[in-house]
Nucleic acid binder design. Sequence first.
DNA 1: CGGTCCGTTGATCCCTCTCAAGGGGAGTGG
DNA 2: CCACTCCCCTTGAGAGGGATCAACGGACCG
Lengths: 239, 239
Amino acid sequence: MKVTQIHPVTRGVSDCGRCTVRENSLFSDFTDEDFRLIQAPIEDFRFAPGAVIYKQGDKVNGLYSIRSGMVKLNRLNVDGTQRILRILRTGNIIGLEASISQHYENDAIAINTVTACRIPVDVIECLDRESPRLHRKLMMKWHETLIEADQWFGELTNGLARVRMARLLLKMRDSGESDVSSLFSLEDIGSVLGMTIETASRIINTLLREGKIRRINGGDRHYQIDIAALEQESQSGAL
Amino acid sequence: MKVTQIHPVTRGVSDCGRCTVRENSLFSDFTDEDFRLIQAPIEDFRFAPGAVIYKQGDKVNGLYSIRSGMVKLNRLNVDGTQRILRILRTGNIIGLEASISQHYENDAIAINTVTACRIPVDVIECLDRESPRLHRKLMMKWHETLIEADQWFGELTNGLARVRMARLLLKMRDSGESDVSSLFSLEDIGSVLGMTIETASRIINTLLREGKIRRINGGDRHYQIDIAALEQESQSGAL
DNA sequence: CGGTCCGTTGATCCCTCTCAAGGGGAGTGG
DNA sequence: CCACTCCCCTTGAGAGGGATCAACGGACCG
């Protein structure tokens, strides 16, 4: 995979108080007093598809709260093996390690156009010290992140290729109980599910022919899915 | 797998100040003043092989710091699929979610004889509030746990079965750069590496015949391993 | 219009699962 | 002390899922 480094565009300074994804964010139950503690500006970023948000080993400069788009967390193993650990979306936080470590643990790469706001390291540290609310919130985010990681592990790494694909389709549904699921390139699907792009392609096309998923026109790999059918598929695969 | 519920034996109350694994523990850089904050006793437990330390969904009663032995974290997916997420050993903490949630997220089961001390929920909460040191330590443990989870994911879920086995053998080395590795039942190995017990058995015996690992007598699945050889093996498997 | 990227499809091979049988150690009861 | 059972590991033969290798088509772009 060739990774194109694309410089992000700063869009301005956020007004967190009226953020549209605030209910998911770190600041969801913040009081006005808490907000007054924030000294440094929280910047708003826009990343083009393929843009590198940060790389494994980079010095941390803050954590990012995703406002829209999809980000892949890429792990580069010591032996050169590479694998997508998980995909993060609106409301998720990437780079949580910024609150405790000096370096990022893996690559974060925008899959499609991503908007995100960055909370600088010193803001986090200050708030963590001064605001019990943020302190608690941070712990909750660690908790959520770990649950998420374990879920990806548990669900997407065993069973037949077809079963794993069904689970991915269900997992990547647009928020809520929607029957629309957003995927990404075959290469990324392969790296998430541990299969080759050929196998991924074959399975998707089989599901299309069987009518269990349907391509939604508008280009960007959106599918309308038959939830019930996929849920049945997804349960076939014990080990 | 039949899981036998074996009641743990409380061995007494710990004196954390002189704990032998203290350097790994939550309390490593505690001052005497910090220790005075601990009101409730920290109990010392001993679990027999196969004992359930806690189950997914159980109400949390504290987190456990492992003093010796191996614990498997078992995830039961909604569809009945079961998988070992990771193995934890001396110095690791299980049930970290006790510090933030009401329920445990997965099953923790003793693989062999395990000794662990339990830090009750209210002790954690109190310390988290009162001691900046423990507060920071907790965050570090979250961080460590997530890194650990991502490592297991990245290293043990792709590549040929033989490559994954090599990586597991390297990962399960006794602390430090030792050339002794401790495994467990074939069933557990299978559940960790996502393969059948037959495949696991075949690979281990092939490695034995090739002299890359050697059984250490003394019963409990200890192997002396050829580190260099296994490291070479472990790098074969991109996807 | 040629080049590149991405997805599709076919043919073949091999790794791993499945099914099946057998062996050894530990515990139990005679 | 020996039969018996149970559990766990081992080994073999056969089948199949997915990898690999290869070719092709469409979209986009210089």
